[in-house]
Simulated scan of single mutants.
Amino acid sequence: MELVSIITPSFNSEKFIAETIQSVQNQTYQNWEMIIVDDCSTDATVKIVEKMALLDNRIQLFESEKNSGTGISRNRALQKAKGRYISFLDADDLWKPEKLEIQINFLKNNNLSFTFSFYDCIDEQGMELNKRVEAPRNLSYMQLFFCNYVGNLTGIYDVNHFGKIAISSIRKRQDWMLWLTILKKVKSAKPIPESLAFYRIRENSISASKVNLLKHNFTVYRTFHGFNLLLSLLCIIGFLFTQLLIKPRYIKTLKHRFKLF
């Protein structure tokens, strides 16, 4: 059973971090290490993680000396990772119990080096929002170029194939740049066509997300891809077209709603 390294940056996550860790501990696939890098939290996050790590030596906590953003935290965790597989889980999201087992089997049975899955959305209180985010069944680089279909909490890649892929230090959209780096090498990716995780939508992120998303995407086109101003603006138009007309096809409405915890 191959070791899976789980990369988790944290910052002021005291309300959610215990549930996040528990969702990892509840995995049917038990050969994992969870590397949590705390980015100078001012709440009880560190104390909660320390307490849980004392009872489970698969949980490792590292504290940053200064607040540097999730990209730096993920890279520090990546440096500590010893697993063949690298996966990602933010400090407020959750995995379903079979997540790792299904993904590892899917990778091995299909001779793949990267995969991801669908995921469901919950609110800050842990209530389901009746929304499932899906993705193209054969995701190409160009599809990913105009829309990030890969939920960060679902992505997993094989270090034996890619090596450890450094995360961008840009504060936003680092996961998108990581998946683009991977897709540029493998050309296309197959998702597991079922929901394996819960993405938590935070109340303080809903209102500002749309405008900021455009700014962050523009930065990706300008900085990561190195495009000039005009080409970057054209890419943003393509992104808007995808968001308005194509991505909604992959947002499914569920019929049930219940509190997870």
Rank of each mutant, 00 (worst) to 15 (best):
R74K: 14
I102L: 06
L112Y: 08
C121Y: 05
Q125F: 10
S113E: 11
L94W: 13
A81L: 04
C121K: 11
N75P: 09
N105C: 11
I104N: 01
D93R: 01
N110S: 07
Q103W: 01
S87E: 08
Q79K: 15
D123Y: 05
Y119Q: 06
Q103N: 05
L107Y: 06
R76Y: 11
K108N: 10
G83T: 10
K99Q: 14
K99I: 11
G83F: 08
E98V: 10
E98M: 12
I104E: 00
L107W: 03
A81T: 01
N111I: 00
K80T: 10
Y119V: 06
S117T: 11
I102N: 02
S87F: 08
L89A: 00
G126W: 08
F116R: 03
K80P: 07
Y85R: 02
S117F: 08
A81M: 02
A91N: 15
R76P: 04
D93S: 04
L112M: 12
Q125I: 04
D92K: 04
D93W: 04
F118G: 05
I104M: 00
S87H: 07
S113A: 13
N75D: 11
R84L: 10
Q103C: 14
D92A: 03
E101F: 11
R76L: 14
I104A: 01
S117R: 10
I102H: 01
I102E: 03
G83L: 12
D92Q: 02
N110K: 13
K99E: 13
L94R: 15
Q103E: 13
S87N: 11
L94P: 06
Q125V: 08
T115A: 01
N111S: 03
R74V: 13
G126N: 06
A77I: 13
R84V: 08
L107N: 03
N111G: 01
T115P: 00
P97H: 12
D120V: 09
S117M: 09
L100I: 15
R74F: 06
P97F: 09
L100N: 03
L100Y: 09
S113P: 07
N110E: 08
N109E: 14
E98F: 09
R76N: 12
Y85E: 05
L78S: 09
K80E: 15
R84K: 12
Q79M: 09
L94K: 14
F106V: 07
I122D: 02
L107H: 04
I102C: 01
R76K: 15
L78A: 12
K108M: 04
K108E: 02
